[in-house]
Design a protein around this nucleic acid. Structure first.
Length: 106
DNA sequence: TATTTGACCAAGA
DNA sequence: ATCTTGGCCAAAT
């Protein structure tokens, strides 16, 4: 079962599956892990920025707002735009369009 | 072991 | 629209 590894580790593993040009919300990520620890997810990112292998910058808030980032929200926005995500007014436009959905176990 | 912290969320005033 | 309050979870102190 997936609950063996540490919560953080699972966060990184799941986040790694998010393709470029897509984003995911903290809530969805937590929900995918079978938990409601939205904050724990963000905490994991903040504490352990596994650098390039884990695209922490693709995680945004539920309302489409960018949220925080270890190196500043500015940098986060910049990267998202660079990946093709429309960010304006401090939030993602057409969140539903860019939102990534995890495959579910069959 | 207990308390604090945080890149959050939703609802209320 | 902004601000406050309560809730939620795991890691760090």
């Amino acid at each position: 079962m997936a609950t063996n590894k540490n919560f953080h580790q699972r966060c990184y593993d799941a986040l790694r599956k998010v393709p470029k040009g897509k984003v995911i919300t903290y809530a969805d990520l937590a929900r995918y892990l079978g938990s409601k620890g939205y904050r724990a997810v963000g905490n994991a990112m903040n504490r352990n920025p596994y650098a390039p292998v884990v695209p922490c910058h693709r995680v945004v808030r539920s309302g489409g707002e960018i949220g925080g980032y270890a190196r500043g929200t500015r940098a986060k926005v910049k990267m998202l735009r660079d990946e093709g995500v429309a960010v304006q007014g401090g939030r993602v436009q057409d969140l539903e369009k860019y939102r990534f959905k995890f495959p579910r176990a069959t």
